[in-house]
């Protein structure tokens, strides 16, 4: 019983290590192709539009609601200590350092990540990638890398927009609804938020951008070329991205505190 359990654990570890190795090799391959892809920047811009611009509505709406909730909860909490004028700094720090990058990454994985994975999976299933290979066009260079870079560039921009809209949402609830003084709200925020806090959010969103985009293009590119395979790749993209984002968030927070 114990022996078989140990065997199973070792086997799972081996599979996990193999997957990690495959991810690392694929990442190195992508990085190797980045300089040449940047020479055809139009392809990347197109993907920034697909991954970034098309995610804007969901990011802005979510940012607004998260900010509004933060405004309500923050006001309720701070009022107990008689320091509701600190709402601005609390909301801004929460959004810039934590909620902005993390929630944006989770939403990105759900919207753009699944779109990337299913698009690449379908291209594999309908022989489009094989056709490119036969036309002596490397699909990794022509299709995968521009999508990867599109995701990497979009994420920090989306996270910044999320945080800005979130702060506006918190202000809307805190100042307009709950009656926090507007001057206090903004001045507290200005004095509390430092450059390092903003950079923490930027670093996090860049790291999440690389991870989420890598996971999406890897899963899509290696999807089993069937309807079930593409579905599984899409699901794996969301699940793996979410777990990795939360794990990396903890590690990055611990490293940057």
């Amino acid at each position: 019983m114990l022996a078989s359990l140990t065997r199973e654990i070792l086997q799972s570890l081996r599979v996990a290590l193999q997957a990690l190795g495959a991810y690392a090799l694929f990442f190195v391959r992508l990085l190797g192709e980045v300089p040449r892809t940047l020479l055809r920047f139009g392809l990347v811009v197109e993907q920034v539009h697909n991954a970034g611009a098309l995610s804007l509505v969901i990011i802005m709406l979510s940012g607004l609601f998260v900010g509004m909730v933060l405004g309500l909860q923050g006001f309720d909490l701070l009022e107990r200590f008689g320091s509701e004028e600190s709402l601005g700094s609390a909301a801004a720090l929460g959004l810039l350092k934590e909620l902005g990058p993390v929630v944006t990454a989770l939403l990105f994985a759900g919207r753009a990540g699944t779109a990337l994975a299913s698009e690449l999976g379908l291209m594999r299933a309908t022989d489009q990638l094989a056709a490119m290979e036969m036309m002596a066009v490397d699909p990794v260079r022509r299709v995968v890398v521009p999508r990867f870079l599109g995701g990497v560039l979009s994420m920090p921009l989306l996270a910044a927009i999320f945080s800005l809209i979130g702060i506006f949402g918190a202000q809307l609830v805190g100042v307009q609804l709950m009656g926090v003084d507007s001057g206090q709200f903004w001045s507290q925020m200005r004095s509390a938020v430092e450059f390092g806090d903003v950079m923490e959010g930027v670093v996090k969103s860049c790291v999440f951008g690389v991870s989420c985009s890598l996971i999406a293009v890897y899963e899509g590119y290696h999807a089993v070329p069937t309807a079930e395979g593409v579905g599984r790749a899409t699901t794996r993209t969301v699940v793996i991205s979410s777990v990795v984002v939360l794990l990396l968030d903890y590690l990055l927070t611990a490293a940057m505190l």
Binding site: T126, D127, Q128, A130, A131, M134, A136
Partner: peptide, 19 residues
């Protein structure tokens, strides 16, 4: 192999057009 393929054309079962 890529040089060789530039001298080849291949038609896939479903056409495999870029959608």
């Amino acid at each position: 192999i890529y040089r060789m393929r530039r001298r080849m054309g291949m038609l896939f079962q479903n056409g495999a057009l870029l959608t």
